[in-house]
Simulated assay, not measured.
Amino acid sequence: MNQISTGTFIARKRKEANLTQAQLAEHLGISSKSVSKWERGKCMPDYAVVTELCEILGITVSELLDGEENERENLRLYDNDQMLEMLARIQRLESQRITIIAIALIVMGIALLTLSPLVGGASLTDFFSGALSRIGAGVVLIGVFLATRSIFEYLVQP
């Protein structure tokens, strides 16, 4: 699954259907920025809109994921429902990966905050103590942000 070839394929099929990005987005109930990101290969369509996207573009899910039209007599090992379920699982795993990274950042930040008072005494070590405190606080904040975003995305998923 190559995001760039899939994006190029979406753009080509959209143009063949005489649709603008805004029109396609309106049909799907999403923003035109999302369609633009797909077509530039920056991200993949969410599994919740894949079926409708394929219907609008007149393609199958396997063609969407392959980024090219398949020969109709070509035998696929998976049907559309199975491919949609795999895409949903991939997107859930990506969300879980971000949650794990967030938790690791929070733990690392707390460790840095804990270590910072132990370093001190001279002007150079005071500098490092202050730097560890600030880095630790920053890492914790980034971790909390990622965890919050991941939890929000989990709650919003259909």
Rank of each mutant, 00 (worst) to 15 (best):
M1Y: 12
N2Y: 04
Q3T: 06
I4W: 06
I4R: 11
G7A: 01
T8Y: 03
F9H: 01
I10N: 06
I10Y: 01
A11I: 01
R14M: 11
E16W: 00
A17S: 15
T20V: 11
A22H: 09
H27E: 13
H27N: 10
G29I: 07
S32Y: 06
S36G: 09
K37L: 12
W38M: 01
E39N: 05
R40P: 03
K42F: 08
K42L: 08
A48G: 00
V50M: 08
V50Q: 10
T51Q: 10
E52W: 06
I56R: 08
L57C: 00
L57N: 05
G58Q: 11
T60N: 10
V61T: 06
V61H: 04
E68G: 08
N70F: 04
R72P: 00
E73M: 12
N74C: 14
L75C: 15
L75S: 13
L77Q: 15
L77E: 14
N80R: 05
D81I: 15
Q82R: 07
Q82S: 14
M86V: 15
I90E: 11
I90C: 09
L93M: 15
E94W: 08
A102N: 02
A102K: 02
A102D: 05
V107Y: 13
V107W: 13
G109N: 10
T114E: 14
L115A: 09
P117M: 14
L118V: 06
G121E: 04
S123Y: 13
S129W: 02
L132T: 00
V139P: 01
V139Y: 00
L141N: 12
F145V: 14
A147G: 10
A147L: 14
T148H: 05
I151Q: 04
F152K: 14
Y154C: 08
V156T: 11
V156N: 13
